[in-house]
Nucleic acid binder design. Structure first.
Length: 484
RNA sequence: GGCUCGUUGGUGAAGUGGUUUAACACAGCGCCCUUUCACGGCGUCAUUCACGGGUUCGAAUCCCGUACGAGUCACCA
């Protein structure tokens, strides 16, 4: 059995799309499940679409996701170079294209591009299907030899006009098409660069790729690939076509529509691990009901047979939930280190950031929520007296005022300010006043934070804020309630 | 338009002829717990698997057709 080798072959045209990342993930998983190799190849055969810096984004994304490749442009390997534009210089694509011509499976074409497009448009306008019947196929040998010296030309694939071509896909099953429906597409462009389709075949073969994982938009061109593999007598790789990741039921998720890229999500406070975990589940279902997976666990659990066939809509709400799960499941110290930079930015006064981190951990889904969640530490926001009214807690302004006055007295009398003392004394006060917990604690929390929602409860907040600041805020609340 | 693929709840999905009166999760709703929200717990949310036929004692599961959707038909990948 040959060693499994997969490749992620993106074009450096901008940000990393979610669908692209998922393909990379699946490629990684397919390889690693069988202890195979995962390679990175940059497909930059379209010189017009090349975007500066896009390659770095690819490296950076793979690194952040811990999808480490075994061979690639940045780390080398036995099948280099791993950038197609560099491979072009060695002339391999041209050599193979010419070999195909010798085998009678391809031909030179001197046709004018605009003329063909005109024909196509004409046919489309008439509503009839267009298939280009290339006159160059029938050119005499002498004429061809003469013209390739002086004219620009492309090399086109020859497709048999009869018969069918079938291929087996691991997720979609066996697909058969009539050869006559296949176009004789260009293999080598007039600038000497191969088209994606051709470069792909040559490189996959030369790099020993055993499993091709890609989007299902390639389903219809796969028969043409096979014709070429067969012409060369090469092994056909195992195909794994994946369903698309959708934005809604009609549109695919794409950067062009302004949909979130991996980078956007990270910037919004999503963890790479959570993003990866979530997208693994878009179009693939594990055998058990487990949903939270580390990359290692995914590698174990992954099974190509369980990739679905219909498009999956990207649900940001579920990702958000999952991100929260990751945050909550972290150990305290890891979480603290993670949020420390944001915390330092958001809290400038001298509070115990570790304590703040602790109360924050259980209540946040996104890193980007931190700023707003802890803004009241530095400065008490102004708030309306309505905040003291809560039906469920059975509090209103009058009860709150009374409670706060009692708390003021209690807090003033406390000689110790550790969490347990505050907790025990506060609860004792509740019992003494014969009221509900919420009737005392809810007003305290509002007074201390000036907010309806806070990380942590009133006792945690009082503890973190300190005696002096807590009393100051309670005083403010009392006078605000009295002045009404 | 031709060809190819797809269609289980708002979303991701399980399910491959009977044990499914369709799992699980997100979202929603309701309740409980709790010092608020959250977290956690519990309950509820598809009598039905796009639709119509057929095969079968029995179908979401097999077959055919229809509808709808997507992909592809570039010197883009």
């Amino acid at each position: 059995m040959k060693k499994v080798r997969t490749r992620f072959a993106p074009s450096p045209t901008g940000y990393m799309h979610i669908g692209n990342l998922r393909t990379a993930l699946y490629e990684y998983l397919v390889a690693k499940k069988d202890h195979g190799d995962f390679l990175l190849r940059i497909e930059d055969t379209d010189q017009e679409r090349f975007v500066e810096g896009a390659t770095d984004i690819i490296y950076e994304t793979l690194k952040q996701c811990k999808l480490y490749h075994d061979e690639g442009p940045d780390i080398g390997g036995p099948c280099g170079p791993y950038v197609q534009s560099e491979r072009v210089h060695s002339g391999i694509y041209k050599t193979y294209a010419e070999e195909l011509i010798k085998k009678g499976k391809a031909h030179y074409c001197f046709c004018n591009q605009d003329a063909i497009n005109q024909q196509r448009q004409l046919a489309e306008a008439k509503g009839i299907s267009f298939k280009y019947d290339d006159p160059c196929k029938h050119l005499p040998m002498e004429e061809i030899e003469q013209r390739i010296k002086e004219e620009a030309y492309v090399i086109r694939q020859n497709i048999p006009s009869t018969g069918t071509t079938s291929f087996k896909d691991e997720v979609y099953g066996t697909i058969t098409v009539e050869n006559e429906t296949l176009d004789e597409s260009i293999l080598l462009k007039s600038d000497g660069f191969p088209t994606y389709n051709f470069a792909n075949i040559i490189d996959d073969h030369l790099m020993g790729i055993t499993h091709v994982v890609r989007g299902n938009e390639y389903l219809s061109s796969t028969p043409k690939y096979n014709l070429i593999y067969e012409a060369f007598g090469w092994d056909i790789p195992t195909y794994i076509h994946c369903p698309p990741v959708m934005k809604d039921e009609h549109q695919k998720l794409s950067k062009r529509n302004g949909d979130a890229s991996f980078q956007d999500l990270v910037a919004k406070g999503y963890l790479p691990e959570a993003i990866l975990n979530y997208i693994a589940l878009l179009g693939w279902a594990p055998e058990t009901t487990q949903e939270i997976y580390s990359l290692e666990e995914l590698t174990q659990a992954f099974n190509v047979k369980r990739i679905g066939t219909s498009g999956a809509i990207f649900d940001i709400q579920k990702l958000t939930w999952m991100n929260g799960m990751y945050l909550r499941n972290m150990d305290e110290e890891t979480y603290y280190q993670l949020v420390l930079p944001s915390l330092k930015k958001a809290v400038n006064k001298d509070y115990n950031l570790k304590d703040i981190s602790k109360i924050l951990q259980q209540r946040i889904n996104l890193l980007s929520e931190i700023d707003e969640a802890v803004d009241f530490f530095d400065e008490l926001p102004s708030y309306p007296n309505d905040y003291f009214i809560n039906k469920k807690m059975k509090t209103d302004e009058a009860i709150s005022l009374k409670s706060l006055q009692a708390v003021k007295e209690l807090y003033t009398s406390l000689s110790q300010w550790d969490f347990n003392t505050i907790h025990d004394e506060t609860i004792a006060l509740v019992n003494k006043l014969e009221i509900k917990n919420g009737q005392l604690l809810y007003p305290i929390r509002v007074a201390l934070s000036g907010k309806l929602f806070t990380p942590g409860g009133s006792i945690e907040l009082a503890h973190i804020l300190g005696k002096e600041e807590s009393l100051r805020r309670i005083d403010l609340a009392i006078s605000q309630l009295q002045s009404k």
